[in-house]
Design a binder for these strands. Structure first.
Lengths: 111, 111
DNA sequence: ACGAAATATTCAAAAACATGCATATAGATC
DNA sequence: GATCTATATGCATGTTTTTGAATATTTCGT
């Protein structure tokens, strides 16, 4: 276990060591979601969510794709996915099968 | 995934999100070690190490047991062990079989 | 081109964290 | 009981993180 590996892994853990980011990742590991969706689910102000998304994006943990006005994010780091499986339980299809549309989000995917 | 669970897991991740603590845990998951051993291996001042050990101890991640003057710590949280297995690779007996005595540590276990 | 909606950026203030250093405690030995 | 050794604690300080709020940017529809 080299020092560099250790630093890298510590950095990954640090990203997950934040309740809001952790919840964002838990949502995104299921399906890609737009910012407004996360805003609706988390109940936090949009700029705040965008900031956390930026942290995750710049770390390479998530990637974004634009669809019109909306930006959809999804999990892009298999190592993080593995850690989430251990910490939060597996992301089973039968558990999360149908994407849950959220009534109070009116992005193209929800309505 | 309740909010409390999320907070708990985020806290656990936060503990691991620190290079020195991560390395300490990587050592302790192999064998119980005394503070002077960690001091020798990590090359950091003893009070600094004791501080990190306290953080981990108060979080319930490690436990201590006294042997004379020495205090031996060991990993006590199976969930953390599982995360370490994923992040740092499994703690295989054939990889770490014999406890590595460190020449520059003269605790009872090393000498 | 203009207005509106979705998202991003920037800045500031408070809180938390990391780290170094001085000192305190506890147990062993003489 | 004095002293030595291993470990713990307390405190000061600089740095990072967190979070809120204002504002900017992008893209679409008209």
């Amino acid at each position: 276990m080299t020092d560099r590996q250790l630093e890298e892994q510590a950095l990954r853990f640090k990203l997950l060591g934040h309740p809001v980011r952790l919840q964002i990742l838990d949502i995104l590991r299921r399906n890609p979601e737009c910012v407004c969706h996360l805003e609706a689910v988390l109940g936090k102000p949009q700029p705040y969510i965008s900031q956390q998304l930026r942290v995750l994006r710049e770390a390479g943990v998530i990637v974004d794709s634009k669809e019109g006005l909306n930006v959809f994010y999804q999990l892009a780091d298999p190592e993080v996915a593995a850690l989430l499986n251990v910490a939060l339980g597996p992301n089973l299809p039968e558990r999360n099968g149908a994407r849950q549309s959220v009534s109070f989000c009116d992005c193209p995917h929800c309505s």
